[in-house]
Amino acid sequence: MQRHLLFATTLYALPVLRPLAETIHASGGEAAWFVASELAPYMKEGEQVLRHAREVRRFAPSAVYSASNWVPHFFPGVKVQVFHGFNVEKRESTRGHFRIRGLFDLYCTQGPATTESFQQLAREHGHFKVVETGWPKLDPLFSGDSATGSDLHPHDGRVVCMYAATFTESLSSARALFGEIGRQIARGDRYWLLTLHPKSDPELVRMYRSLEGPNARYLEAVDLVSMMRAADVLVSDTSSAVSEFIVQGKPVVTFRNRAPRPHMIDIQTADQLEAALQTALNPPDALIDEIQRYALHIHPARDGRSGERILAATDAFARGELGPLAPKPLNVWRKLKGRLRYLGWTEGSLSD
């Protein structure tokens, strides 16, 4: 039986890795988790959680799958990057999605939009491989399980609007749209599903939670996929939720997106939201075409089997079928920071 370790440092990593865990179990493998201490309350019954490096060594995973920007270099197994979101151009490429940290052996990319860039980086650096697999977080969107998100629909059949904002203050729409979203919720002709990034200002979260009632519900990031499946339209900003949502072929309204594209309905002021929603709910053919074109560019897989392809790619890497690697950079400072972060999550030490 193959053993696999799922590594998560933030709440939004859980819905990325849980579908992969299900795929591991379905394949006859064993999955365990190593998570940041603050995620402990969000772990489900039956999920095996390892708390120390010594437990990881005893578990002896063949691979470690990370939905974070880093992974402990001292854990055994192939280090696999599965990403915590799409590239939404929040930062320059050298600081954002395409930053190479010298910690991973294999990058499992989501679609052509990321595959081509990472393949070029793999040729330049030589110390990792790239395989386009699709993204496990989206597997439930295409799994055919009609129950996913069904409990989030209002019983009266109203249109469902989803709101999700990024936590980057300069890019977030949360403060600017709060008043207008509150008015729309009070009006009651549509039902709203609300969420904010786990790193958002707690006072801002409190504000949005206060909107809950018969016309709205606030949910955590772990429920994001169910929300996306239930919603008819998304309101957001420069959040990776925009790309995740649009893969379904559904319209998105963005507020001052950093890099607006034809598949978005981008607005500049809160009072433009209502007109944008009306367009989104009755989209012209040109908008539908742009949505489909972009969706295929970032995530062409529609079979709900990305997790299976990730496991297959990892096995191929472990067997040496993807070719040799150049030595990784020493990364002394980055490795030291990783050890200190690990110690902050555990009571023991690396010598345990």
Rank of each mutant, 00 (worst) to 15 (best):
G29E: 06
W33D: 10
T23V: 13
R18T: 12
L17M: 05
P19K: 05
G46N: 06
A40R: 13
V35Q: 08
T23A: 15
R18V: 10
I24S: 03
Y42R: 11
L14D: 08
R18A: 10
L20I: 06
R18E: 11
Y42K: 10
G46W: 05
L39M: 13
E38R: 14
W33S: 10
A26M: 01
A32P: 02
A13D: 10
S27G: 06
A36P: 10
L20R: 03
M43F: 07
A13V: 00
W33L: 07
L17P: 10
E45S: 14
A31R: 02
H25P: 00
V16M: 08
A31G: 03
P19E: 06
P19D: 03
M43W: 05
E30R: 10
L14T: 11
A36V: 03
P41Y: 06
P19T: 08
F34L: 09
S27M: 01
E45R: 13
F34M: 14
L20N: 07
L17Q: 06
L20V: 07
E45K: 14
V16R: 02
W33G: 13
H25E: 15
V16C: 11
V35F: 07
G28K: 08
R18N: 12
V16W: 03
G28V: 08
L20K: 02
E45H: 11
G46R: 08
T23H: 02
E45N: 11
K44C: 07
S27K: 10
A26S: 14
G46P: 04
A32Q: 01
L17I: 06
A31C: 01
G28H: 09
A21G: 09
G28C: 09
P19F: 05
S37Y: 00
K44S: 13
R18Y: 09
F34I: 03
T23M: 02
L14K: 04
P19V: 05
L39R: 13
G46K: 05
V35W: 03
V16P: 02
T23D: 04
E45Q: 14
P41E: 07
P15C: 10
H25R: 12
P41T: 12
P41K: 09
L39E: 14
P15Q: 09
S27Q: 08
G29Q: 03
S27T: 09
W33Y: 15
T23K: 07
K44N: 10
E38C: 01
E30Y: 00
L17A: 07
L39H: 13
S37R: 15
L14R: 03
E22K: 09
Y42I: 00
A36H: 15
S27P: 01
W33Q: 05
G29K: 04
K44L: 15
E22T: 07
E38F: 08
E38V: 01
F34S: 12
A36D: 15
R18Q: 11
M43D: 03
L17H: 08
A32H: 03
G29F: 04
A21Q: 13
R18D: 11
G29N: 06
L39C: 14
V35A: 12
